[in-house]
Design a protein around this nucleic acid. Structure first.
Lengths: 158, 158
DNA sequence: TATTGTTATACTCTATAACTATA
DNA sequence: TATAGTTATAGAGTATAACAATA
């Protein structure tokens, strides 16, 4: 590939190009790996959020990461069908469905986290500790400067 | 958003998360901006590639960035309908359609490049020149280490 | 037989709008 | 009237497979 004459590697890549190139690669690769535990990135992300705030409503969870209500339904449906999440009635407001992880859900989350860690290591393979820290800081600064929102992943929102 | 209790910002982000977060943001933002000249990222990319290798066949262009033949048809169809690209017969092989930019295509490309430059500036706003260079080098190293392929954008391939 | 370009088709992801049951 | 959840539906983007013309 690198030796082809018809590709885009003649000009040095811009930061914008590199960022989107590496970012999409990282997302794709993570999607591949998290599939090993029969999850996909959105599902894994929701599992994490429920774990961090058990008993919250579907829409409260969704609002935090800019996921519309209708999508939350589909996502939670799938998690519930697989027995990873439970929808419990909220006695104070019968419209609300409070979300809880099942034991199976908790175990899936643990396995997912191990994969996330392995993915992180794969992605930073061959990088010195200094470079990792440096890169993290630069990207974090960008998230703040560009007002992306910490923890808000655009691939799971609008 | 940053003050919400139900979001993902409690734990410090991993490099994998940051990379995909910032990368997808950069892609989305670029898509928004390039729409100002009535293009989308794949179309702009193809325009660039044709400019760099005029007279090549559709499939030769597509192969360099891992785009399947059937998709090249749709992409070039659209560019041709808008009068940005011309398909010319190749007298040596009548199966082949050689691609050329029209004057209008060249002008669209110029305007697109100006937008790409503005996008680059927006994305690196508030960053020192040192940090830009540093970030570029780190990402470039990652592209090589992860065998992503210089100039090959995963968002325009498989 | 192999290759270029094409068509037909289908699948994934996602959002918008309308609906229901509660409040 | 407003809100939580739901359903119906449609659009964008993309890939695979089969096909026609030419090599």
């Amino acid at each position: 590939m690198t030796g082809d004459s018809v590709n885009g590697d003649r000009a040095p890549s811009t930061l914008a190009f590199l960022l989107s190139q590496v970012g999409i690669h990282a997302s794709r690769r993570f999607a591949e790996r998290i599939a090993e535990v029969d999850l996909n990135p959105p599902l894994f992300r929701i599992l994490n959020l429920i774990d961090a705030a058990e008993g919250q409503s579907q829409q409260a969870i969704g609002a935090g990461i800019q996921v519309p209500p209708s999508r939350m339904v589909a996502l939670v449906d799938e998690l519930e069908e697989r027995g990873l999440v439970e929808r419990r009635p909220n006695p104070e407001d019968r419209r609300v469905r409070a979300l809880y992880l099942t034991r199976k859900g908790r175990s899936a989350l643990t396995r997912g986290r191990a994969i996330a860690k392995a993915h992180e290591e794969e992605l930073t393979e061959g990088m010195s500790e200094t470079d990792r820290t440096r890169l993290t800081k630069l990207l974090q600064k960008m998230v703040d400067q560009q007002a992306i929102g910490r923890g808000v992943h655009p691939g799971l929102s609008s």
